[in-house]
Simulated scan of single mutants.
Amino acid sequence: MMNDSFMNSEWQSLCDHLDEVSKHLGGSREEVMQFRDQPPPQRYPELLERVRQAAALATRWRGESATHQQDDELIDEAGRESFPASDPPTFSHAHA
C-alpha cells in the first residue's frame, strides 16, 4: 500500500487537473463533481484506473468540443459568404 499522504496528494492533483480540463473543453461540471466525490484511491492501481477514467472524460469532452467548433466554423463561413449583402453602403463626405 502507498503512503496515504502521497495518494491523497495525487488524487487531489488529478481532480484539480480534470476540473481545469473541463473548463478548457467545456466539460460537464456535474461530471467533474461526481468524479471528485469518489473516495480517494487507497492503492496505486486504483489511482491509475481513476487516471484512465479522467482521460476518458477529457477525450469525450474534446470530441464534443470539436463538434461545436465545426458548427461555429460553418456559421462563420455562412456569414462571410453573405458579407456584401450585410454591409450598409459606404458613406463618404466627398459626395455630400
Rank of each mutant, 00 (worst) to 15 (best):
D87Q: 07
D71T: 08
S82A: 15
E46W: 00
P39A: 14
S5N: 12
S92N: 09
P89L: 02
L48E: 09
R60H: 08
P84F: 01
V21P: 02
R52F: 07
P41S: 06
W11V: 06
D4F: 04
P41F: 04
R36M: 02
A54D: 06
P89H: 00
Q70H: 15
N3F: 00
Q12L: 08
A58W: 00
N3V: 01
A58Y: 04
H24S: 02
E64A: 12
S86L: 11
G26K: 02
E49G: 07
H95R: 08
Q53P: 09
L57D: 00
Q38C: 10
H24E: 11
Y44N: 11
R60L: 06
L14M: 04
G63S: 11
D71P: 05
S82H: 15
L57F: 01
E31L: 10
A55V: 10
G63C: 10
R36S: 01
Q12N: 06
R43H: 12
H17W: 05
M1P: 11
H95C: 07
E77D: 09
E30T: 07
S82N: 09
G26E: 00
R52P: 07
A96V: 09
R50S: 04
G26I: 00
G26M: 00
S92M: 13
H68C: 14
G63I: 00
E77T: 14
E77A: 15
Q12C: 02
D72R: 14
I75A: 13
R62N: 12
L25N: 01
G79Q: 08
S9G: 09
P84E: 03
E20S: 03
R50Y: 12
L14H: 10
D72H: 09
L25D: 01
E73G: 11
Y44G: 15
L74T: 13
R29N: 05
